[in-house]
Simulated assay, not measured.
Amino acid sequence: MPDSPKEEVDETGGPDLISFADMPDRLEAAGLTRISKQRCRQLAEEDPAWPVPLDKALKVGRMRLFDWRVLEPYFRNRTPRQGQRTDLKPPATEA
């Protein structure tokens, strides 16, 4: 009988908790684009589509923990936006 695929769910059936520091490695392991923990934190603070409000995140000391099973669909469906370099634009001329 073939082995069943490994599930990412904890054996106890509880949430799969990760911190901002764990997110870059988890994204890469899931086959997604790796982004820095600072960018993950920025998305959590600024993106209205972030699935877990920061005030609802589980806190352990100063660390915030999030359920990976809730975050993974967010990162899979998120359209990355490249920043614009303002230093390369010519100065605007007044008419």
Score class of each variant (00 low, 15 high):
E7C: 04
L88G: 10
T86W: 08
D10G: 08
R78K: 11
G13A: 14
L58Y: 04
Q38F: 13
L54W: 13
P15W: 01
W50F: 11
V52T: 11
A29R: 01
P90H: 08
P53I: 07
A21M: 03
S36F: 11
A92G: 12
T12N: 08
I35D: 00
R69D: 08
P24A: 13
M23I: 12
E28Y: 06
I18K: 05
K89D: 06
R78G: 14
F75V: 12
D87W: 08
R64K: 06
M63V: 13
V70S: 01
V9R: 04
P53R: 05
A29L: 01
D55T: 15
I18C: 04
D22Y: 00
A44Q: 00
G13F: 11
P80T: 03
K6A: 14
G13E: 15
R34L: 03
V70Y: 00
D47I: 04
Q82E: 09
K37S: 11
D22R: 02
D67G: 14
P73H: 07
K89P: 10
L27V: 05
L54I: 12
S19Q: 05
K6P: 09
R62S: 11
A44Y: 00
D47F: 02
L88E: 10
F20K: 02
L17H: 01
A95Y: 01
M23L: 10
P5T: 14
G61V: 09
R76L: 15
P51E: 04
D47S: 10
A49C: 02
G83I: 15
G13Q: 15
L71Y: 07
E94L: 09
I18G: 07
P2A: 06
W50N: 06
T93F: 09
L58W: 03
I18E: 02
M63A: 09
V60W: 12
T86C: 06
E7A: 12
K89R: 12
S36A: 14
L65T: 13
T86D: 09
A57E: 09
L71I: 04
E28R: 05
I18D: 00
D22E: 00
D87I: 04
K6S: 12
R76P: 04
Q38A: 11
Q38D: 07
K89Y: 05
